[in-house]
Every structure is written in structure tokens, then in C-alpha cells.
């Protein structure tokens, strides 16, 4: 059944997206390969370094491959990596505070997991933090690209490069897309964990047992920290972009490309 759905998806994306659709399919394929091979390598490696590598690779694939090297993509890349690293530290701290990762109380007694050995030599809390950050990176890239491209439009048409205008533009655009991007994450999460919410309801969790439940903390930390990352990337991307406009390299590059256009 998944195969048929996959065929429908491919046909639709090529019919509607054209050559750009093919391009995003290739990028998606690259992401799938990187994701699963890094899961495979994670058996032997430190999840944090691996995920950092994944994030950079993902940025290269979605930003550089699809949009080329320019000030927009470079500033998005830098800001996404900065936010991801900071988010990783914060999540590690908070994950430790709230005991994130490992089996939650439902998985502990699930049939399919019961007869599996738990001696796996990888620290699962670390994996959980790393996966939290990797999971939000797609959204971070989306927001960073939107912010930097809108600032870029203003910067290109404005010869005086007034810093204040640039920042106001970036923040303004960030405001307008932040809500819908976080909504995407939140509904994806509700869809994924609907059965768990039903379990909470079925076992009649009280408020107190809910906020001290491991399963609940895993979900809420995931949503809230991802959303915080999304918020943080707006000012960071704006700031990085304004700083980068001062670099000669980009300024020159820009001047050349506008001359070519003329």
C-alpha cells in the first residue's frame, strides 16, 4: 500500500512541480539515504557529532544544491547550524532535568519490545536529544530561507543598506510565517501520538500524574524545544544576514551579478 502511495506521490510531484519537483525528489532521496545511513552508523558512533554532520549535509542538499551558493543560502546555513548547536546544548540540559529518552512507561510493557535485549551500548537519552534537533532542522531551514530571501529582496533594491530596515523586514516576515511552521510540527506530532493521548485518557491519568509522566515529558519537550528553535532562528538569520552584507566578498559578488543582469 505504501508503494502505491509512493507512486501517486511521485506522479503528483512531477506533474505539479515539473523540473523543480524532480529536483526536490532528488534532494529528498539524498536526505533519506543520509538519514538511514547515519542511523546505521550511529550504532558505533557519538550521536551528537553524527547529527551535526547530518545537519550540515542536509543544509548543503536543500540550500546549496537547490538554490546555489549566494548570500541567502550561506547566511541560512550559518544561522541554522548556530541555532542547532545551541538547541542541542539546551535540550541536553533540559532532557537531563526531565529524564528524557529511553523507554517510556507504555513502551516498557509493549509486546514487540518486551523480548528485546536492552544492552545496546548506546546512551539512548543522548540519541533522543540528537534526534530532537535533527527533527526540527527541516523547519529551521524553511524559516531561515524565507527570512533571508525576503531580507535579500530589500537589500538588493536598497543601495544604502540601512541595517535597521533589513532587520525590521526580516523580523516582520519571521512573524508571519512562524505560526504556520510551528503548526506543521504540532499537527504532525498530534497525528503521530494520537494513540498515546488515547492511552493517557484510557488509563485516566490525573493532571499530576500526567505532568510527571515520562511519555508526556518526551512529547512536550519535543514540541516545545522544536518550537523554541523555530522562534530563535528568525532573529539569528536576520542578524547573520546583516553581518554578511558587510563582507566584501558578497558585496562584490552581488555587484557583479547585477551588472550581468543589466
Amino acid at each position: 500500500m505504501n508503494f502505491v502511495l509512493f507512486l501517486i506521490f511521485i506522479v503528483l510531484i512531477i506533474a505539479i512541480g515539473g523540473d523543480r519537483g524532480v529536483m526536490s525528489l532528488v534532494a529528498l532521496l539524498g536526505n533519506v539515504i543520509v538519514f538511514f545511513s547515519s542511523v546505521y552508523i550511529m550504532k558505533y558512533n557519538d550521536p551528537y557529532k553524527l547529527v551535526l554532520f547530518d545537519i550540515v549535509f542536509m543544509c548543503l542538499l536543500t540550500l546549496i544544491y537547490q538554490n546555489g551558493v549566494n548570500i541567502k543560502t550561506m547566511s541560512s546555513l550559518v544561522s541554522v547550524v548556530i541555532v542547532a548547536v545551541v538547541l542541542m546544548y539546551i535540550s541536553k540540559y533540559i532532557g537531563h532535568l526531565g529524564n528524557m529518552g529511553g523507554y517510556n512507561e507504555f513502551e516498557m510493557y509493549e509486546d514487540t519490545l518486551m523480548n528485546l535485549s536492552v544492552n545496546i551500548k548506546i546512551n539512548l537519552p543522548d540519541v533522543a536529544v540528537a534526534m530532537l534537533v535533527l527533527g526540527v532542522t527541516g523547519a529551521l531551514i524553511d524559516i531561515a530561507v524565507a527570512v533571508t530571501s525576503s531580507v535579500y529582496e530589500v537589500w538588493k533594491n536598497n543601495t544604502e543598506n540601512d541595517e535597521k530596515t533589513l532587520i525590521t523586514t526580516g523580523m516582520h516576515l519571521g512573524k508571519s510565517i512562524l505560526g504556520s511552521t510551528i503548526n506543521t510540527l504540532w499537527f504532525a506530532c498530534v497525528g503521530e501520538f494520537l494513540l498515546m493521548f488515547l492511552l493517557f485518557r484510557r488509563y485516566e491519568y490525573s493532571f499530576v500524574s500526567l505532568i510527571n509522566s515520562k511519555a508526556f515529558f518526551d512529547i512536550i519537550a519535543n514540541i516545545m524545544l522544536s518550537a523554541t528553535g523555530c522562534c530563535a532562528v528568525v532573529p539569528v538569520a536576520t542578524y547573520v544576514f546583516t553581518k554578511m552584507t558587510k563582507w566584501d566578498r558578497f558585496a562584490k559578488h552581488e555587484a557583479e551579478s547585477t551588472e550581468e543582469n543589466i
Binding site: 529528498l28 535533527l134 527533527g135
Partner: peptide, 13 residues
């Protein structure tokens, strides 16, 4: 926007 949206879904799931 299709490419990035599909990526968001892939990673978050």
C-alpha cells in the same frame, strides 16, 4: 516551497 515542506515532514516523522 514543496521541497522544504516535504523535508520537514520527513524529518519530524
Amino acid at each position: 516551497i514543496t521541497g522544504t515542506m516535504v523535508n520537514i515532514l520527513f524529518y519530524s516523522y
